[in-house]
């Protein structure tokens, strides 16, 4: 059974994968997003994710619906974790099951890109010498509250 969830608990990857397995599927693609230590020269100590949970779950569901319309017979589950996460912790898991392998890659990529566009989840990065809410993935619209030097 497909599901779309925001959770403060550690994500059980296998549970997400098993939720999309079905007899018509010939491929299950799993995307696992983890906390990266370095972005360029910036060293992340930890991250905090915050969500508007009820709306975020609706938007994740919307992504699943968009995928099933674009790719026939594709099933999707998405779980995103919130709260404080350490380096290498799992932040998001996307499982996509499809009749053939090509759609599973395409739909998985589509899901993560859409998450970064429409799902109300925000990331705050904590560095050794500062912290900042990240405004977008290109970090062009962030809101400094103690921005470290660019060459740090």
């Amino acid at each position: 059974m497909e599901y779309y969830k925001i959770t403060t608990e550690e994500i059980d990857v296998n549970e997400v994968v098993l939720s999309v397995v079905h007899p018509e599927a010939g491929a299950v693609n799993t995307f696992i997003g983890t906390v990266r230590e370095f972005t360029g020269h910036k060293q992340t100590v930890s991250l905090q994710y915050e969500a508007y949970p009820s709306m975020a779950e609706k938007q994740l569901q919307r992504i699943g619906t968009e995928i099933s319309k674009r790719w026939n017979g594709v099933k999707t589950s998405i779980v995103h974790r919130t709260g404080k996460l350490a380096i290498s912790d799992i932040a998001v898991v996307i499982a996509v099951a499809s009749p053939h392998r090509a759609e599973s890659y395409e739909a998985s990529r589509y899901a993560i890109e859409r998450i970064k566009e429409i799902v109300p989840i925000w990331k705050k990065e904590y560095w050794v010498d500062g912290e900042e809410w990240i405004g977008d993935q290109l970090e062009q619209t962030s809101y400094p509250t103690g921005r470290p030097k660019e060459d740090s």
Binding site: A91, I121, D136, Q137
Partner: peptide
């Protein structure tokens, strides 16, 4: 008023 999102 949803600020630019940064999940994933």
């Amino acid at each position: 008023f949803i600020p630019p999102v940064s999940g994933g």
